[in-house]
């Protein structure tokens, strides 16, 4: 065995490497699997479940599930898309996401996923949680309203920046990203040069002094939907957001 194996994704046979996750194998084959917590520079985590697919009819997170020979995967079926759409909608109502004024608009993976899935409004009631802003750091800002608890920043601080500036605190609905120390981000050794803001998929962790610098038409998702660089385009990006 040379470490190659074959899986089936939506009826299409795909060659994969042993040890790859479903998400990685699909990506190599030009099949986009939506994701928020997964990031190519970070360890796998499996928290957001946006990459949920069906393996043998059973829901599993594609970003953590290793491929197995002969695996039969649904990535683009109605049922899978409905599961993912529901998860994305729940992420929207759980926080306070006001895309129209957010400085990450047009460059936000959550917003881009909503556009890709055609979500114009959530079916669930908004929870409008009261969450503070940690703005005390001179170069960084943590807006908990927009956090989806993907944990990219926590992993980036440890794995890429060699620090432990951020971690998780609380449980259930009270779970949140917390800076390491009583003074919030300002009390940590995080700096504006760290990768924690760069990897944030939404407008939760931001570098100060950079907002709205990219004009309309030049933002990441202005012309191509999220995943468009991996698979065939699934529709025109909308002009007005």
């Amino acid at each position: 065995m040379n470490g190659r194996l074959t899986i089936t994704v939506d009826g299409r046979r795909i060659e994969a490497r042993a040890g790859q996750t479903i998400l990685e194998a699909c990506q190599d084959a030009g099949v986009y699997v939506p994701r928020l917590c997964a990031h190519p520079k970070l360890s796998v985590y499996g928290s957001c479940r946006v990459c949920t697919c069906l393996v043998g009819g059973r829901a599993t997170a594609a970003c953590v599930q290793p491929v197995q020979p002969g695996m039969v995967i649904e990535n683009d079926s109605d049922r899978v898309l409905e599961i993912r759409r529901t998860i994305i909608e729940m992420l929207f109502v759980e926080g306070n996401h006001f895309c129209m004024v957010c400085e990450k608009s047009g460059d936000c993976e959550l917003q881009a996923l909503a556009y890709r899935f055609g979500i114009t409004h959530p079916r669930f009631p908004y929870m409008f949680p009261e969450r503070p802003i940690d703005a005390g750091h001179p170069e960084l800002l943590l807006d908990h309203d927009r956090c989806v608890l993907c944990g990219r920043c926590v992993r980036a601080s440890a794995e890429l920046d060699g620090k432990s500036a951020l971690g998780f605190a609380g449980r259930g609905l009270r779970r949140r990203i917390e800076a390491d120390g009583p003074r919030g981000l300002a009390g940590t050794d995080a700096t504006g040069d760290d990768t924690i803001a760069e990897v944030c998929p939404v407008g939760a962790l931001l570098r100060k002094g950079t907002a709205y610098r990219t004009p309309y038409g030049r933002r990441r998702y202005d012309h191509e939907p999220i995943g468009g660089d991996i698979d065939a385009p699934c529709g025109e990006a909308q002009e007005d957001r």
């Binding site: 129209m100 907002a211 709205y212 610098r213 990219t214 004009p215 309309y216 002009e239 007005d240």
Partner: peptide
Amino acid sequence: TGGKRVHAIVAVPGGVNK
């Protein structure tokens, strides 16, 4: 100037973005 007809954005503190 601002990329959109309604709710355009061009001004940022200290200048413009295009």
